[in-house]
Design a protein around this nucleic acid. Structure first.
Lengths: 220, 220
DNA sequence: AGCCGGCGTGGACTTTCGTCCGATGTGCCG
DNA sequence: CGGCACATCGGACGAAAGTCCACGCCGGCT
């Protein structure tokens, strides 16, 4: 595990709790090619410290006074050549996770993560790979798995449609009216209606809104 | 890293390629509390070997003749007290990943994963934690992130609705007709229509189908 | 107090949707 | 060849969806 390409990974630790900061610094500094280049107690202080030390990785607490970890992360990632961000938090609520990912974090760890894994996370993220807490990974997996089951059913149903019927169903799922569909597909209003009726019958649905929802599920 | 709770993790290696099998067995057997309990060349052989050796983890290739890795995984996970499954494959196409997750795999690794990480994956999965290839993790993260951005916009729009209007919008997103909504919410048909009109105006949409799609996005 | 704006409730009216007839033409399969 | 599914269109009709106007209520603003 020794002898990485870049000789030293510079890390910035951001947390308002002095105890947490020192614990993190102690476990990281000196460990396996990692050096803690600085500490911040607030999202406000981050930009200056990043300017000063150009860290490769920022370990960021989410819950901080004044400028929180989310906002700080978002701003960081808008820079040219931004550092990778690993979010460290106590709770892995859905909200937290999604916002952190959206803000551009490459890592999401719970604070009770064993030290060895935090060290590992820094290495991985510095190498451009993501690193998530097992519980978070599991949640994303479950979500993806559940999604795909809906998809399968919806797709199977849609296979029973003929080509034109399918076109019309897709147009419905874009929110188009029958008149719009007729214009776009160069057919008469009567024809569109006929197709719609067939679609409803074949899919065993009652109205176009249900068609839209089913097609939407199939596509996602 | 030595001294795990269970003294030995039993692994079953399933791959139709003899070279891959021996490579995996060599890197795993004896490594850090892991023992390769058996090898199979086909999904067909898996049940008997699982019965015989009761492995904790099954390393499963996806592309195999006869009974493929997906089907084998699905059947395995339907057993009482099933082993954890780590899918090993050359390609991480969306289809592969989703189907594997849906089949109940707890791990998904590319075959070019460095040996140390494969060993680590076995340990993690045996402990009940998931383990995904970085590229797969990244993809799930991107998907979740993108989803959430749509959600945000949709939710913001929905906040402008009053309580009743919101109720009606949600009912529309369930595919309900105005008459059904009126019955369920104890109001007259006229009232429902009025609410629908207000919803359309506030959300700047043209018809109920578009409402359904927007609400659907907001909820997912 | 008076006024105004949003809300929930409706009725009357217009437009769109969906169904049910009909018809024609095409291509494909047994 | 004779069906059969598909795609196309028309008309007519009932049902559903949407628009418009109106009323009473309530809370805030002047």
């Amino acid at each position: 595990m020794a002898g990485v390409s870049s000789p030293e990974i510079r890390v910035l630790v951001v947390d308002d709790d002095a105890l947490v900061r020192s614990a993190l610094t102690m476990m990281l500094d000196g460990a396996d090619g990692i050096r803690v280049a600085g500490e911040a107690t607030d999202g406000d202080e981050v930009p200056a410290l990043v300017d000063a030390h150009a860290p490769h990785v920022v370990l960021m607490d989410l819950r901080m006074p004044r400028v929180g970890g989310l906002a700080a992360t978002k701003r960081l990632r808008e820079r040219p050549d931004p550092p990778e961000v690993v979010v460290l938090t106590t709770f892995d609520s859905d909200e937290n996770v999604l916002h952190a990912l959206r803000a551009g974090a490459s890592g999401f760890l719970l604070k009770d993560t064993p030290p060895a894994q935090i060290v590992e996370a820094v290495h991985r993220v510095a190498a451009g790979d993501p690193m998530l807490s097992p519980t978070v990974t599991r949640r994303l997996m479950d979500q993806a798995g559940a999604d795909s089951s809906d998809r399968e059913r919806a797709r199977t149903a849609l296979r029973s449609l003929s080509e034109r019927e399918y076109d019309v169903a897709v147009a419905i799922a874009r929110g188009r009216s029958n008149a719009e569909i007729a214009a776009e597909a160069y057919m008469s209003l009567s024809t569109v209606k006929a197709h719609v009726s067939h679609v409803l019958a074949k899919l065993d649905l009652e109205n176009r809104t249900q068609v839209a929802l089913l097609v939407h599920d199939a596509e996602r």
